[in-house]
Every structure is written in structure tokens, then in C-alpha cells.
């Protein structure tokens, strides 16, 4: 376990100055800033609606977040964490460390996983802050009158679980293909397909539709943490982790 933490700390060190880490830090703040601007400058419109502003804010953010931002971020993280090793053929070097091979692969996967979790939690936290600031600056919107942020937070967790399938597929593609175009291009095409086909009766089986389907559940206030699409996403994630590990072992043998 100690070695796992060391390997994980090493991943954090290696992520300095990478796109994945920078994006995890500034993108949630940027999204929250846009949400703040929207509510601040159109406070009268939102006040007139009289609806729960926490839910309105979440609905505004989740639209793009589910379709594009979160799957794209998962792709960037998967690409960036693999690219760090591809860039100088460092996988071999990692496997000559006196570490169990599984620990090395797991730490890299776990780091990417934590980065997506951090991204989700940071955005969630920023939105909470935005709501509270607006409660003071624009009390007419009514953030102070509602206490429903728990549901928004719950859906951030659901989105996170839903995107793990996409992340795992992208992690595998980024491990297999060393360039940017192929894994991210394929990911983007699948994401668009997932968004378009999210309403199809078997779309719950397609991990790239999962986040869009969860955003639909937000609209319908379906709170369950484990609807079929999330279970599929988790299952895909587990299976692809093992496939990726076996592939990693095979690749270093070349």
C-alpha cells in the first residue's frame, strides 16, 4: 500500500505543467464564473420565474456539462496521463522499478480517476459558492430561500460515476495509440454518437450516452445512484482496467 501512495504521489509530481492538471484547476472556476455572470446580469429574469434557483443553475450547467465538458475532460485526462509516459517511452522505465507491476498501472489509473473526481467536486464546490454569493448580492433571485443543493451535489456524483466508462475506454485508447488525434478523435465521434443516440432504448448499454442520460434523470429528478447506465459504466470501467493492464504487460514485451 505504501508503494501505491508513493507511485500516486509520483503521478502528481509528473502532472505538473500538464493540460489535465491545469484544466482541473481553472475550468470549474470558469464554468462557475459564467454561471455567476448569467445569474448576476439576468437576475430579474430569474427572479420572475420564481423557481428553485439552485435547480435552475444546475440545469443550466448540466446541459453542456453532460454532453460535452465532462466526457471531453475525461478524454483529456486519459490522453494526458498516458502521453506523459509515451513521450519518452517511459513505460519500460516504470516497469524496471522495484514495484509490483499492478501497483504501477493502478497508480496511474487512480491518478486520472482522482483528477476527474477533483474536477467534478471543484465544480460542485464553486457552484455552491456562486449560489451563496448570489444570495447576498442578488437576494431577489432567492438562493437563500431554497435548500436543494444536495440534489445538485448528488447528481455531480452520478455524472462522475457515469463518465467512468468513457474514461476507461479513452484510457485504453490513449494507452494503445500514442498520438492525440486518434484517441481523442474517436472519443469525440463516439461522444457525439452517444449524445444523438441517448434516447434509443438500448442506449443504456453505450457508455458514451451515460452522462446525457443522467442529465435526463436530473430533469426527471430520478435520484438513484445506480441506474442501468451507471452500472454499465462501472462494469466497463472494471473490465477495461484489467484489459489495459494486460495490454501494458504485452506492450513492454516488445
Amino acid at each position: 500500500m505504501n508503494k501505491f501512495w508513493l507511485a500516486l504521489r509520483s503521478e502528481f509530481l509528473k502532472s505538473r505543467r500538464t493540460l489535465a492538471l491545469a484544466t482541473a484547476a481553472w475550468l470549474p472556476a470558469l464554468i462557475a464564473g459564467l454561471a455567476f455572470a448569467l445569474f448576476y446580469f439576468r437576475s430579474e429574469d430569474f427572479a420572475k420565474m420564481g423557481a428553485d434557483p439552485w435547480q435552475m443553475m444546475a440545469a443550466n450547467v448540466f446541459g453542456l456539462y453532460a454532453v460535452l465538458i465532462l466526457p471531453m475532460y475525461a478524454m483529456v485526462v486519459a490522453f494526458s496521463t498516458n502521453q506523459v509516459e509515451h513521450a519518452s517511452n517511459a513505460w519500460k522505465n516504470l516497469f524496471t522499478l522495484p514495484y509490483p507491476r499492478l501497483t504501477i498501472y493502478l497508480s496511474k489509473w487512480a491518478f486520472a480517476f482522482l483528477l476527474i473526481l477533483a474536477f467534478s467536486l471543484l465544480l460542485c464546490g464553486w457552484l455552491y459558492l456562486v449560489g451563496n454569493v448570489l444570495a447576498v448580492l442578488k437576494p431577489e433571485i432567492g438562493f437563500q430561500d431554497f435548500n436543494s443543493f444536495g440534489m445538485t451535489a448528488r447528481f455531480f456524483i452520478k455524472f462522475f460515476l457515469a463518465v467512468l466508462g468513457v474514461f476507461s475506454i479513452q484510457f485504453l485508447l490513449s494507452f494503445y495509440w500514442r498520438d492525440f488525434i486518434r484517441p481523442v478523435g474517436a472519443g469525440l465521434a463516439l461522444t457525439i454518437a452517444g449524445a444523438i443516440g441517448a434516447g434509443w432504448e438500448y442506449a443504456w448499454l453505450f457508455p458514451y450516452s451515460a452522462t446525457v442520460r443522467v442529465s435526463e434523470q436530473f430533469r426527471k429528478e430520478q435520484l438513484s445512484f445506480f441506474p442501468p447506465e451507471i452500472l454499465v459504466s462501472l462494469l466497463a470501467s472494471g473490465v477495461l482496467f484489467l484489459v489495459g493492464y494486460l495490454l501494458a504487460l504485452r506492450r513492454i514485451r516488445r
Binding site: 507511485a7 509520483s10 505538473r16 506523459v84 519518452s88 517511452n89 517511459a90 519500460k92 516504470l94 522499478l97
Partner: peptide
């Protein structure tokens, strides 16, 4: 060991590369 070309992280400094290695090897 050094196998084939050196496996270095080009976006990090020489010192950070060494720190990373020292961290892993305690």
C-alpha cells in the same frame, strides 16, 4: 538501469525528474 533511450519527462526540469525518481525509490 538505462534501457534504450533515457526515459525522461520532458515537461519537467532535470531536478524534478530526479525528485520523482528519488520519491519512488524512497
Amino acid at each position: 538501469s538505462l534501457v534504450e533511450e533515457p526515459a525522461l519527462y520532458h515537461h519537467l526540469t532535470g531536478w524534478e525528474n530526479m525528485l520523482n525518481r528519488s520519491l519512488l525509490l524512497r
